[in-house]
């Protein structure tokens, strides 16, 4: 069953089309990665789903109900972890979570229980009386998450939740994402860190110019560009190296040189690694290292959009 369905979703700001007839389905129980460069329409889509802005046209259905006609229902079932840390510095960790959870109708003992659960989940139970101004960046990020999950939403949208934090806190957050998913939450995850998306997401959509240009599991996405591979050769001294003979090796499609590194793009179906190594030995060029790299999401993204994710 799909928890979220976007049908021909469009958002215009004047003449500028930020989201262009975007259609997407997210199944219940997924960790869904949404990839897109800045200005691709990713945040606008999230803002429309969470109800912050209204769609110009199209339909958003959450658990089979249109969110246009069921705003309260949608708000009750969605939790958003915003990219910017959105907490009150003058309220304690407990008071922050309690205030936001209280807005979702939780009261009394139930509210207290849920707040404690959320703080425990993000590992801030022992700091519940502390003020966020005394927290590290990672702790603030975790409190940011606690404020979004205390009301137990079915769908959690995490917008760049690991920006600017230390590796330890990043691991903690990524583990939290998996745990939330195991507890039955569906998660939409956006990040600039491709390796994070590869690590936690079960389904990924690449958005560019307001449209979904590719969608599937990471394996399915990589298969889009499995017809080529990259061989990276690092040499001690590049002087005397001639590129033209390399390009004549069977299966080689292109050669690029950067400092003492040579990137050889080659046909995936041709086993030409021995011929490449032989060429360097024949020309008495000492090899430091040699690597054959499989395509990753970064290269998929680059191939599909023509630009890096951080552009």
């Amino acid at each position: 069953m799909n928890i979220l369905e976007l049908t021909k979703l469009t958002k215009k700001f004047g003449d500028f089309i930020a989201v262009d007839q975007l259609t997407l389905s997210i199944a219940e129980g997924e960790i869904f990665g949404l990839l897109g460069a800045n200005g691709a329409g990713k945040s606008t889509t999230i803002n429309m789903v969470s109800g912050l802005i209204r769609a110009t046209s199209g339909e958003i259905q959450l658990m089979g109900k249109s969110i246009t006609n069921n705003r309260h229902f949608a708000k009750m079932n969605i939790g958003v972890v915003p990219q910017d840390i959105a907490i009150y510095e003058d309220l304690t960790a407990y008071e922050n979570v309690k205030f936001f959870a209280g807005l979702y109708g939780l009261r009394g003992t139930k509210l207290d229980e849920q707040v404690k659960k959320a703080l425990e989940f993000v590992g801030l139970s022992d700091r519940h009386k502390s003020f966020p101004k005394n927290f590290s960046g990672g702790m603030k990020r975790r409190l940011n998450i606690a404020c979004a999950i205390a009301h137990q939403p079915k769908l959690i949208i995490m917008d760049e939740p690991t920006v600017g934090i230390d590796p330890q806190s990043r691991n903690y957050i990524l583990n939290s994402v998996r745990k939330l998913n195991e507890m039955g939450c569906t998660i939409i995850y956006t990040s600039h860190y491709m390796e994070e998306v590869e690590e936690v997401c079960s389904q990924i959509a690449i958005v560019d110019h307001g449209k979904v240009i590719a969608e599937g599991t990471k394996e399915q996405l990589k298969s889009i560009i499995t017809d080529t591979k990259d061989v990276w050769v690092e040499v001690k001294n590049i002087d005397g190296l001639k590129l033209e003979p390399i390009q004549t090796i069977n299966g080689v499609l292109g050669v690029e040189v950067s400092d003492n590194q040579i990137k050889i793009n080659s046909d995936m179906g041709v086993n030409n690694l021995n011929a490449i190594i032989q060429h360097f030995i024949t020309n008495q060029i000492e090899i430091h290292s040699i690597q054959e790299k499989e395509p990753n999401l970064e290269s998929v993204f680059l191939t599909l959009t023509g630009r890096s994710l951080r552009d």
Binding site: H72, Y88, L103, G105
Partner: peptide
């Protein structure tokens, strides 16, 4: 404090 959006996301 960037909490305006978080308030608007809540059913208030």
């Amino acid at each position: 404090q960037r909490t305006a959006d978080r308030l608007l996301l809540a059913p208030i």
